[in-house]
């Protein structure tokens, strides 16, 4: 499942349409849109740290997060640079998030391939404007650009939003750093008046193809995992039966499980051996003692 968190409706209107997400009218606190078949749940958090953290915490508690799930923060942001700077196009994947109020930094893993530019983002408590006094302490300089004289790429620009750091911190209770992605589209460089819902919607719509291509890519990664889980369940059921027929104690059950796990991974056909024991009438055993003896014999045969 992909859990998408966005602050505002215009930031994800095109996504809702693209994935035919339905509104979950049962949810009292946050607006949720979902499509179970597509494996997507989109949550509107509202603007700001507290709302964002509350939404992540609430949703991830309500829908228990699985090992194959991802948290993706999608939204617009400001560019930390001079007022005249030309706004960069495209989507940015954030590789460093700094919480302005505490100075703490967070690093989502960038393990998977992507076609975006990368950037670091500063998360503040109030909207970023270029009226200097309003956001104290923000370093205005743009980072070194790609292909700088050192010959390697540094983050080409710094971004500013009001949710990423909170979403990371709340998300870290449920997701590892390799399962959290922060995707941002630049909407302004500090002139918040110009950022109307229409502008935001247009910006996001313009990047819809790249965004959905990435989301589909993430959904594809976990397909083999689901197949494996099915196979594993079947094996576990067989082992449970064997343990029952061996009259295993809790400790012995752990031993049997570890052995069968190893045998199947090492390509040792323990099931054929076990079948022989059943055929010879050695299994099921009549009691714990005989079970122990029987398992020792199986072990001797296979190790």
């Amino acid at each position: 499942m992909l859990y998408l968190f966005a602050a505002l409706y215009p930031e994800c209107k095109s996504l809702i349409r693209h994935y035919s997400l339905k509104k979950d009218t049962n949810h009292p606190r946050f607006q949720i849109f979902y499509n179970e078949a597509a494996g997507i749940r989109l949550i509107l958090t509202g603007v700001g740290n507290i709302k964002a953290a509350a939404a992540v915490s609430s949703i991830c508690t309500e829908y228990p997060v699985g090992e194959e799930d991802y948290l993706i923060n999608i939204g617009t942001c400001a560019l930390l640079s001079d007022r005249e700077a030309v706004l960069p196009e495209g989507i940015f994947l954030c590789n460093k998030i700094t919480e302005q109020t505490t100075g703490r930094t967070f690093y989502p893993d960038i393990l998977y391939r992507h076609s975006f530019k990368e950037a670091e983002i500063l998360t503040g408590a109030v909207p970023f404007t270029t009226e200097k006094d309003e956001v104290a302490g923000i370093e205005m300089s743009v980072g070194e650009s790609r292909g700088s004289e050192a010959g390697y790429e540094r983050n080409p620009c710094r971004l500013y939003d009001m949710e990423a750091a909170a979403i990371y911190q709340a998300g870290a209770y449920f997701f590892g750093p390799h399962r959290m992605m922060f995707l941002k589209v630049v909407s302004d460089s500090g002139c918040t008046d110009a950022v109307t819902p229409e502008v935001v919607e247009r910006k996001m719509e313009a990047n819809l193809d790249a965004l959905t291509a990435y989301l589909d890519f993430l959904r594809g990664i976990e397909a083999p995992v689901a197949l494996k889980a099915e196979k594993e369940e079947k094996r576990e059921a067989q082992v449970r039966q064997l343990c029952q027929d061996l009259h295993c104690s809790k400790t012995m059950e752990a031993t049997v499980t570890q052995h069968t796990c190893y045998w199947s991974l090492a390509g040792i056909d323990y099931q054929a051996a076990v079948r022989e024991f059943y055929a010879d009438g050695k299994l099921p055993c009549i009691d714990k003692r005989e079970g122990k003896r029987c398992f020792e014999e199986i072990k001797r045969k296979l190790l």
């Binding site: 460093k96 670091e120 390697y152 790429e153 540094r154 983050n155 870290a172």
Partner: peptide, 19 residues
């Protein structure tokens, strides 16, 4: 061609929870 990201201390990156 690598992205170079500045950090304060290597443990900020190396010792994160849930890696």
């Amino acid at each position: 061609k690598a992205w170079v990201i500045e950090i304060d201390h290597y443990k900020d990156m190396f010792c994160r929870r849930g890696q």
